[in-house]
Design a protein around this nucleic acid. Sequence first.
DNA 1: CTTTTATGAATGAAGG
DNA 2: CCTTCATTCATAAAAG
Lengths: 217, 217
Amino acid sequence: MIMDWENQQKQQQNQQQHEELINGNNNSSGNNGIFVKVMTDEQMEILRKQIAAYAAICEQLVEMHKSLTSHPDLSGARLGNLYCDPFVTSVGHKITGRQRWTPTPVQLQILERIFDQGNGTPSKQKIKEITSELSQHGQISETNVYNWFQNRRARSKRKQQVTAPNNAESEMETEVESSNEKKTKSEDFQPQHNQATRAEDLCFQNPEISSGMHSVD
Amino acid sequence: MIMDWENQQKQQQNQQQHEELINGNNNSSGNNGIFVKVMTDEQMEILRKQIAAYAAICEQLVEMHKSLTSHPDLSGARLGNLYCDPFVTSVGHKITGRQRWTPTPVQLQILERIFDQGNGTPSKQKIKEITSELSQHGQISETNVYNWFQNRRARSKRKQQVTAPNNAESEMETEVESSNEKKTKSEDFQPQHNQATRAEDLCFQNPEISSGMHSVD
DNA sequence: CTTTTATGAATGAAGG
DNA sequence: CCTTCATTCATAAAAG
């Protein structure tokens, strides 16, 4: 469930691998069950609802916030103070200080979006704009943005190189890649047991996934 | 400000569904093949991040309200209900875990041997060779080898660092920050204090909020 | 089963 | 741009 993912994001919890056994739940025919990563319609629907729930919560919170804050000064920068955690106040020094920037999820999404827009050349001016926008979502500098794009491109390239190192002279279909290489992980290594079936593209990047997803049924 | 998350929604990515007909060619006993959605690892990763982003946003908003309103229970409790999703249980567990390469004893032995030979930087070509050799003893990829050497070197170095500094230990009051002391780098960005909007780092990290928000099960 | 540790992998930043 | 390093994250394995 969702919780598991969040736990992963936070700290190490024990968790175990789980592969869905297809056809294991609705059919007892002699179908020996293959292990793949797969979602049934039911699960898709569940996921959709879950995400929709998140979206709804966000909306509600935004609304609540809007109505609750009739004071203009309460918004924006003030929010940062919410995060005054015991660490900072107690030491006020370097304990909490992480020396390297880490993009917030929101920032990351924006960055990814910009990256996917194809304008592979983040010009100096562009960087400024982006930085400006992102700074509304957390501390950031132009250097951070620059580095991010630099790394993003390099690594996306390297990954492609691994994926298709076989073509030397024949030109492949060099389209469709921009949308394809937004993924960030999962390399070419083979898990010891079994590899999942491959499929075409599925893009869940958009929160409006909900409308898209249930159209399948 | 923070809830500019509408921006995220603007990101119109091409999203499409893909249905995989599993066992559709056989199995006509009652149910003629079921449609399921197959997701690749990358897609799973994307989804995971997407949801994590939502989670982070929601958490931030929740915190925000707790502070802005005098009734922390108001927002908190209400929100909890939104998560009461009866369906979650049907998915039950995580859909897919990320898997990682684990060197076989033989592979490990070979790697250690090569590492001890002193060649600190296995070039790309070298990596290929090593990978080739190791693949005879189990599933492996160049990336795995690359990572292994990276990690091996880094950790070997760190260990030395801990063992070596036995000289001039006069004021070992605040130890462990040895690497931090010489961190006179250009702090282009502000080491964030109260402005942080990163859920991973601060108060949101504790499971309490999570459990509060996810009153599933 | 839960907690801890070891380690593969991801990634921001520096160097060239 | 590309490579390398340092740090952090996530998880398989080990310990309790």
